[in-house]
C-alpha cells in the first residue's frame, strides 16, 4: 500500500469535505461534496474494494450530488439570504474528533499493517450478493422502491 498516495488522497478528501461543510455558496459546497466523495472512493480503491469504490462514485457523484444540485436550483429564491454560522456546532465536532482520535490511538491492537489478501473480484461480490445475501438484497430493492414512491409523494403539489 502506497503511503504517499494515501497521504495525498487523505488530505484532498478531508480538505474537500471541510470545504463542503464550510463554503458560503451552496453550489460550491455541493461541488466540494462531490470532490470529497471522489476521495473516499479513492481510499476504497486503495483498500482493495474497487467495486465499492465504483458504486460510491456512481451513486454519490452520479446521483446524490446531482440530486443536491437540483434541490439547490429548486429552492434558489432562498439561497441568497444571509446565513449565520453556529459556532457551538464547531466546538462539539472538535470535541468528538479529539475523543475519537484519543480512543483510537489509545487502542494498541489497532496499529496493524494490512495483510496480503486475495483480490476481491466483482465475481466474488456478485456471488455473495446472489447467494448468502440474496434476501437482504431483495429487501433493499423493496426499500428503494418505497423510498422512490415516498419521495414522489412528498414533492407532489399540495392540494389546497
Amino acid at each position: 500500500m502506497n503511503s504517499a498516495a494515501f497521504i495525498i488522497i487523505a488530505i484532498l478528501t478531508l480538505g474537500a469535505a471541510l470545504a463542503a461543510a464550510t463554503l458560503q455558496k451552496l453550489m460550491h459546497a455541493a461541488l466540494s461534496f462531490a470532490g470529497a466523495f471522489v476521495g473516499v472512493a479513492a481510499l476504497f480503491f486503495l483498500l482493495g474494494a474497487e467495486f465499492v469504490g465504483l458504486v460510491l462514485v456512481f451513486i454519490y457523484i452520479g446521483a446524490v450530488a446531482v440530486l443536491i444540485v437540483f434541490t439547490i436550483l429548486l429552492t434558489r429564491r432562498d439561497v441568497g439570504k444571509d446565513r449565520g454560522f453556529n459556532w457551538s456546532g464547531v466546538a462539539i465536532a472538535v470535541a468528538v474528533f479529539s475523543g475519537l482520535t484519543w480512543s483510537i490511538l489509545k487502542t494498541q491492537s489497532l496499529s496493524i499493517i494490512a495483510p496480503h489478501i486475495r483480490a476481491l473480484t466483482v465475481k466474488r461480490v456478485g456471488e455473495a450478493l446472489m447467494t448468502s445475501y440474496v434476501w437482504p438484497l431483495q429487501c433493499v430493492g423493496l426499500l428503494l422502491t418505497a423510498a422512490l414512491i415516498g419521495a414522489l409523494v412528498l414533492v407532489m403539489e399540495e392540494k389546497r
Partner: peptide
Amino acid sequence: PTLQIFLIVSGALFSIGLLAALSRRHAI
C-alpha cells in the same frame, strides 16, 4: 499506513460531517 491511520481519517470525516450538520442553517 496502519489501520489506526485509516480510522483517524474516517473519524475526521465523521467530525466534518457532524460540523456541517450542526453548524449550517441550510437544510441541504
